[in-house]
């Protein structure tokens, strides 16, 4: 066997082991819900964790000057206030949208380092009744 293939095999085997034992092992529970957090508050304090849920309507506050973003993540039962700063949120971010935030619980609030937006699996064209203005806003808003 030529050495270059031996090296390639080791690299591939190493990558697979990393993916299976490192990546997948931690990710079988990809995010926790607010209800799960309240069941084991001590366990999740001050360590990196992902929290998932919906952005509760009426709780979204965004300050474009300081880029500080505050909202409440809910699973319909429990709510967690989230603080996020730094990056501009993705275009699809909004109230009643699914989100996954990566960060830490600090006291009562969750401090997010990374904000990810979930989107649904349905794809629908604008229906009759949509005004041309609404369609224009959709196209420009998502560019």
């Amino acid at each position: 066997m030529k050495p270059k293939y031996l090296i390639a095999l080791v690299v591939v085997a190493g990558a697979l082991a990393y993916l299976v034992f490192g990546g997948l092992g931690q990710n079988l529970v990809y995010f926790i819900t607010p209800s799960e957090y309240y069941q084991q508050i001590d366990r999740y304090q001050n360590r990196p964790v992902r929290l998932g849920g919906l952005v509760k309507p009426g709780t979204l506050e965004y300050n474009p000057q300081t880029l500080e973003l505050r909202f409440v993540v809910t699973d319909g039962v429990k709510d967690v206030p989230v603080r996020s700063s730094g990056a501009t949120p993705p275009a699809l971010f909004g109230e009643n949208r699914g989100v996954v935030v990566e960060g830490r619980f600090q006291g009562e609030a969750f401090v997010s380092q990374n904000l990810l937006v979930k989107h649904s699996e349905t794809y629908q064209a604008p229906k009759e009744g949509w005004t041309p203005e609404e369609v224009r806003k959709l196209i420009e808003g998502t560019q």
Binding site: L92, H119, Q124, A125, P126, V135, L138, I139, G141, T142
Partner: peptide, 8 residues
């Protein structure tokens, strides 16, 4: 057509 939430 564009998607209702994601656009083009």
């Amino acid at each position: 057509p564009p998607d209702q939430s994601q656009g083009y």
